[in-house]
Design a binder for these strands. Structure first.
Length: 801
RNA sequence: GCCCGGGUGGUGGAAUGGUAGACACGCAGGACUUAAAAUCCUGUCUCAGCAAUGGGGUGAGGGUUCGAGUCCCUCCUCGGGCACCA
């Protein structure tokens, strides 16, 4: 037998074996075994290639898939590439290398890296979102949304870099600075495509049947931001229009002493009096010029301007001035609020600054709480005062009563509001899926016919920005010029492309259809394979990808394309791997590549080292100091299995059974780190001892999901047939785990004073007697024993006075 | 400001309310070797002690309990998310 395990030889050999046997490939039609859709968030083919963060996520995901396979599931584990997007395009602008070329090169390299991992990816199901046979269906999805009123076009402000004279995606305008030139980003109105995700806000708050981290659910709930309140109409004095406001505190209506409109509110122009016109115009101009940085500055002083107009408070007829201030947001609620300075922090600050009246209408409900007035707004619920017939009513009740009271006059109604905004999917960018819409002089806006998909992205194009804020596709006459699908007349194509999040919000529906010729939305197949049983990826996608994907999936469900109402039944986030405490990124120059470690130690050692670092969901800071420990373990395990010890001490069967139990429970909980410790303990225990062939095979099956190549090599040498992954997961006998003798800890007044070894079935009285007789314990029993506690099999605690 | 999640040896970390520090890394000593590497053995929270043993100890302070790293309250601190959302 070989003294050393040659990882590089073995890993190459077994990868070839798996490939030859197509062991990674899933028969998607199979119905003899329960299906298990095991998915990881597919990578972006960046210039950094795969880094150890990918490995940290993908390797355990593969271990999980292999484990489920051994547990008897028909596991489907696909992989692909999220290939459209800005980095490739920006790189192209800088270097002139076509994004298609960069993407192709990166994918080829990453594919090699992924293969070196030796994971059971079903490569036959691979998708690349930038390829026409994929984005054809991205466009198809768009058309389904379009035809069902879930996509619309409207003019909206977008990020604009005044220096580059170009539109920026949100991702390019982070922290209000332009990605390329660091100028401050401003807003510019452009006609854009939106997806009506808001329509699904309520449905997206339903997580029934989902096994998701609480944290992710909370993040999404927070993002969707449901709130219950009322809409109230205020008449404008001397003008035949009403202003509707949204409030969650209609109970404070009697305290409304002024009203505020967002600077973008449509009524401003009409209600502003002549003498205030100039100051109002100036104010609006100023806020429009303000950069995102200025607008979101912390503790920014409130500013505003009076319109000269007045509204009538619907409950008491009070005349209240109408102001404009940019602390009111146009996109939330109605873009107008009633201001109650006594009971709202922001209104309070504004009222103080502009010397507007503050009227107290809520007082604390009991005497133990004191109102914060007049120093600060009192924002808690309480009971109403100074509110005529509603005086004395508790806030919660008053909200219903006042709404109902005004509802009778048609002036108010209950209203649920969401913070979630519609999803802007237009990008004036080249490297994305073209939006399948054409504009015809006669017919207007027309959808491309499904049979004419894909609308191909032209390859020979000048993708440098022209400074007009338009998509580079505009420069391609060949692309722009087309015929109207309806009338056949001359038409022009939409030149915006789709946000890459559109491509990635449905890719999990593409994989299960991969074995069907060109039918990516076969209901039968999708209903068989969806939802994804396990979805593994980073928590940074909580409010973007994971929300978009749920939305698209629900829409497709409602349109009858898939039975499941949710895409991801179980979601697990791996922790983040940092380098010297910082997120790995090219700009920081701290990206660690897995390649050298894989080459030096092999895939098994590297993946186990990552898993051994700590709990999977925790992540950690990368350093390679401990990797030798795993290498030693692999060698030790190898030797323990290869050794033919004769006439030596036999390993206790209980140890094998205990290890099976521990490893099974740990992998079930995705505690790969402790599963590995348990196997280390087994290797330590087994060294130099006699193991039966059966015991060796059990141990080999246990390590298989964690160190697949090593396991195959050992399997072939301990009498195993075929692949160890065609074997079932080992089981244990609970009866074998119980030791005949157990150690009991003995405490006196909660302090450990000794341990005793007792037969496992010894009764309470006998255990207590033995405990008291223990030499060291005796010393502490001078006083009266007032209480005796015995936790069977664990501990004795004697309480002495 | 609001909502989450952490804080345990020199390091990564382990511990259904029941012997804190498993399993590793590192370090120290030893065996093997001419030597080194590899491997193996022993020790390794801290203080006192040759030892047996005892005191202290899981960010800080209180509390519940026979018993708290674990549960409750207050605070400190680090990480993540959201943030003028009426």
């Amino acid at each position: 037998m070989l003294k050393h395990y040659d990882h590089s030889k073995a890993e190459t050999k077994w990868r070839k074996f798996w490939e030859a046997k197509k062991l990674y490939k899933t028969d998607l039609q199979d119905s003899t075994k329960p299906k298990y859709y095991n998915l990881v968030m597919f990578p972006y083919p960046s210039g950094d290639k795969l880094h150890i963060g990918h490995w940290y996520s993908y390797a355990p995901a593969d271990s999980w898939g292999r484990y489920m396979r051994m547990k008897g599931f028909n596991v489907f584990q696909p992989i692909g590439f999220d290939a459209f997007g800005l980095p490739a395009e920006n790189y192209a602008i800088k270097t002139g290398v076509h994004p298609a070329q960069t993407t192709k090169t990166n994918i080829a390299y990453m594919r090699k890296q992924l293969k070196a991992m030796g994971a059971f990816w079903d490569w036959d199901a691979e998708v690349v979102t930038a390829e026409p046979d994929y984005y054809k269906w991205t466009q198809w999805v768009f058309l389904q949304l379009y035809k069902n009123g879930l996509v619309y076009r409207k003019t909206a402000p977008v990020n604009w870099c005044p220096s580059c004279k170009t539109v920026l995606a949100n991702e390019q305008a982070q922290d209000g600075l332009c990605d390329r030139c660091d100028s401050e980003v401003t807003k510019k109105d452009l006609t854009q495509w939106f997806v009506n995700i808001k329509q699904y806000a309520q449905k997206l708050l339903d997580y029934k049947g989902l096994d998701w981290p609480e944290k992710t659910r909370l993040m999404q709930e927070n993002w969707i931001g449901r709130s219950e309140g009322s809409e109230v109409d205020f008449e404008i004095q001397g003008y035949d229009k009403k202003i509707t406001v949204y409030t969650t505190r209609i109970d404070t209506l009697y305290g409304a002493t002024y009203m505020v409109l967002a600077p973008e509110h449509e009524l401003i122009e009409k209600i502003t009096t002549i003498e205030n016109k100039k100051s109002v115009e100036n104010y609006i101009k100023k806020t429009r010029k303000a950069t995102d940085i200025e607008r979101s500055a912390e503790d920014r002083e409130k500013t505003g301007v009076f319109t000269g107009a007045y509204a009538t408070n619907p409950v008491n007829g009070a005349k209240i001035p109408i102001w404009i201030a940019d602390y009111v947001l146009v996109h939330y609620g109605t873009g107008a609020v009633m201001a109650v300075p006594a009971h709202d922090t922001r209104d309070f600050a504004f009222a103080k600054k502009y010397k507007l009246p503050i009227k107290e209408v809520i007082s604390p409900i009991n005497n133990s709480i004191k109102s914060t007035l007049p120093k600060a707004a009192f924002v808690d619920d309480g009971k109403l005062i100074n509110s005529s017939e509603f005086g004395g009513t508790p806030s919660a009740q008053a909200r219903l009563d006042i709404t109902r009271f005004l509802d009778k006059k048609g002036l108010a109604k209950l209203k649920i509001n969401y913070r979630l905004r519609d999803w802007l999917i237009s990008r004036q960018r080249y490297w994305g899926a073209p939006i399948p819409i054409v504009y015809c002089d006669k017919c207007g806006e027309v959808a491309v016919a499904e049979k004419d998909l894909p609308v191909k992205l032209p390859m020979d194009i000048d993708f440098t920005p022209k400074g007009d804020g338009k998509s580079p596709l505009n420069t391609s006459k060949k692309f722009v010029t087309t015929k109207c699908p309806t009338c056949g007349g001359p038409a022009t194509r939409e030149t915006d492309t789709m946000d890459t999040f559109v491509c990635s919000s449905w890719y999990f529906l593409r994989y299960p259809c991969s074995q069907l010729e060109g039918k990516p939305f076969e209901e039968k197949m999708l209903s068989k394979w969806l939802p994804v049983d396990m979805y593994i990826g980073g928590p940074e996608h909580a409010c973007m990808h994971l929300l978009y994907a749920r939305f698209i999936h629900k829409a497709m469900h409602d349109l009858g394309y898939v039975k499941a109402s949710e895409p991801f039944k179980r979601l697990v986030h791996q922790g983040m791997i940092t380098k010297n405490g910082a997120k790995m990124s090219k700009s920081k120059g701290n990206v660690v590549s897995p390649d050298e470690f894989v080459k030096m130690y092999g895939s098994d050692v590297f993946r186990m080292y990552l898993m051994f670092m700590g709990p999977f969901t925790q992540g950690g800071d990368w350093n390679d100091k401990g990797i030798v420990g795993i290498k030693r373990f692999v060698e030790k395990f190898w030797r323990a299995m290869m050794e033919e010890v004769k006439d030596g001490e036999k390993i206790a069967p209980a140890i094998i059974h205990k290890t099976v139990k521990k490893v099974t429970e740990d992998i079930d909980a995705m505690h790969f780190n402790t599963a590995i410790s348990a196997l280390m303990a087994l290797a330590n225990e087994a060294s130099g001892k006699v193991l039966s062939k059966d015991q060796k095979q059990v141990a080999t099956r246990l390590i298989a999901p964690l160190a697949p190549h090593l396991a195959e090599e050992i399997w072939s040498k301990v009498g195993g047939k075929g692949s160890v992954f065609e074997e079932s997961w080992p089981t244990y006998d609970s009866a074998q785990i119980v030791d005949d003798e157990i150690t009991i800890a003995i405490q006196v007044n909660g302090r450990l004073r000794g341990t005793i070894l007792i037969p496992k079935d010894l009764g309470k009285e006998a255990v207590l007697a033995r405990a008291k007789a223990e030499e060291n314990v005796k010393k502490y029993l001078a006083g009266q024993v007032v209480k005796e506690i015995y936790v069977p099999g664990k501990i004795v605690n004697l309480v002495v006075k």
